[in-house]
Design a protein around this nucleic acid. Structure first.
Lengths: 193, 193, 193, 193
DNA sequence: GATGAATGAGTGTTCATTCAT
DNA sequence: AATGAATGAACACTCATTCAT
């Protein structure tokens, strides 16, 4: 691997832009290469094939975000607060990179099952962190001890993901970050009056 | 349109099976035609192009389900109960057709952005019903008057969708229907103890 | 298989011309299609892939020749005469098709090992016929009972093949057919005075 | 040219091994360089291009063998005996280098027409020696004065070549050297009883 | 002399759609 | 209405060669 070489990062970043601007199926290797300012063949000095570029996009970018969450979890705060940090961090992560938001929420989902399976592997690291927050909250009595962890995880992730996707499909025209408190509140208290 | 002709339905059903069994990208028009027992060219007497078949799959099948929900809403029950009927109905709908579940949760999401926008148009009818339940619940004081309808809708839909997708990705090996009460409870009360 | 359809033969013949005129590595599928007067995609209705075209070229054309030899062998003539018919038939076969001669003697030998292995399978049918002539000649006392059949076969085939290849490499500028009697004589009597 | 520098020979030897072990089309310049223990670019300090390496392989190795034959011809022996020395020498040459045998009999024949014409230029030196033996034999009355020198040459070379190729294709699993007397006998006396 | 990272031209194959029958 | 043979555009990847160091 040559992940430390500057061209590796250069190509990953170019892939995000090429996919966001042209769409998944129209982001040919030659377009990515052009965007990165390298020759087509150079791509293959850093990636085995096109799929490797795409999985790397997700792994590298998601990795940045997982780091943020990991740091938030280490803090001496309640599970409730950690959950907020996760939601807000997730929103902030994609809010700060319009292209990346389009790629993760819309384009990368068009990939074939093989690639999506690999993407899910990366996603698992995120879901494990979420689970640990949920477990901690239950242990500390902050969250309802009766809840099914798997269902709760699906509610949290499903709500966050759907919120971001809607924001992207609406051309990111409102402020995603401002929604964090209300999403947090809904997840914790539900809709009941 | 020739939606009433028997071959129209025949082709739509064949498309569901072809996609579920071969995957979105491997469900060529010729495979759908073979599954439907017609010639390739015949497809084009009933659909303008391949995209039309796929959008029809979603429209026809989703239509069946929307009818169910519409009937549930007419009943003289509380908004809370209507919400339960919707969740349970959604689960029951996909629980009763394994192929369709695979197609809506996994395969159709690989379609390009254009098709997905069109699918979302169809989905809107469903979301409008969901909104009406939410509004009714707020008016009747069952749901918190402070909630943002859009966010609440995204939580409900995101949670349901993620729950079903997880079930499909786990090869539908547990009983989806049994999860309805807990999902309903989580949405209403949240995770807080 | 669709070997009886006229387009099958049309494509095989086009391949011979395309390869002879452009060389093995420059005979792209698109060139063969153009020569055959069909679209590129049409090729794949009759052949699984490019290699299939090439092996078919050899099989179909070699088949024609093997038939000739089979008929010659049935005749009520001596093994010595049968051997002459084989040599003369081989020369006549390639003499009658300049393009095919170039393809079998020069171009097809550039194919990769896989393809050459398959070509050798076809060639085996020819060598079996040769062996049967040799055995018959030995039994009838026409040929030396001491000779090693395998070596004799290699001498006969090696001599014929080298003679034709030289003729092709010299741009087929002399009369190959006239060499048959002398080649026959050399094989039977050797060089000794 | 830099044929005397140690790296020149080093690269030629590496090419033989790389081609024999990987096949003609899989013997990339980078593989030859690696086998020779030099950088890719270094190859181009000694050879104009890849074709130059391959022609050098044939020239250098064939040259060794031609020397042997030249010495054999100088001896005070009959043309018949010289012919035997040539056959036996040819067999011995390739028998002593398994890699080289694969390269000359199988792999190098996959090269394009251009390269094969150049290889034939090198081969000519060998064929001239063969011709001189044939002429001497005729003059001395050992060989039939009626034979066509060119055809006789093609018989001798074709038989030897086909014999060696068969041996290589059979994974060199029998003793090639033992075949020399019988091949010699066949060429001289033919198959007739 | 030696290196090796970078280059970029070149091609077999698939499949949605058409149209003569 | 129905057929299915024919079409042809579109793209990831390899590898011989170069040249700045």
């Amino acid at each position: 691997m040559k992940r430390d070489k500057p061209k590796y990062k250069q190509i990953v970043d170019a892939a995000v832009i090429a996919i966001a601007e042209n769409g998944y199926h129209q982001a040919q290797v030659s377009k990515i290469a052009k965007e990165a300012g390298v020759a087509d063949g150079t791509i293959y000095l850093y990636f085995k094939n096109k799929e490797e570029i795409l999985i790397s996009v997700f792994r590298e970018k998601m990795g940045d975000f997982v780091e943020i969450v990991k740091n938030a979890i280490k803090k001496d705060i309640t599970a409730t607060e950690k959950l907020y940090e996760m939601i807000e961090g997730h929103f902030r992560w994609l809010h700060s990179d319009r292209h990346l938001a389009i790629v993760t929420q819309l384009e990368l989902r068009q990939s074939n099952k093989d690639l999506r399976y690999k993407i899910n592997e990366v996603l698992k690291e995120y879901l494990v962190l979420l689970d640990s927050i949920l477990k901690e909250g239950i242990e500390k009595g902050e969250f309802d001890g009766q809840i099914d962890i798997r269902l709760a995880r699906q509610m949290v992730f499903g709500t966050i993901d759907e919120t971001i996707t809607s924001w992207v499909m609406n051309d990111q025209k409102y402020d995603l970050l401002k929604l964090a408190p209300e999403v947090h509140r809904l997840i914790l208290n539900g809709m009941k009056s």
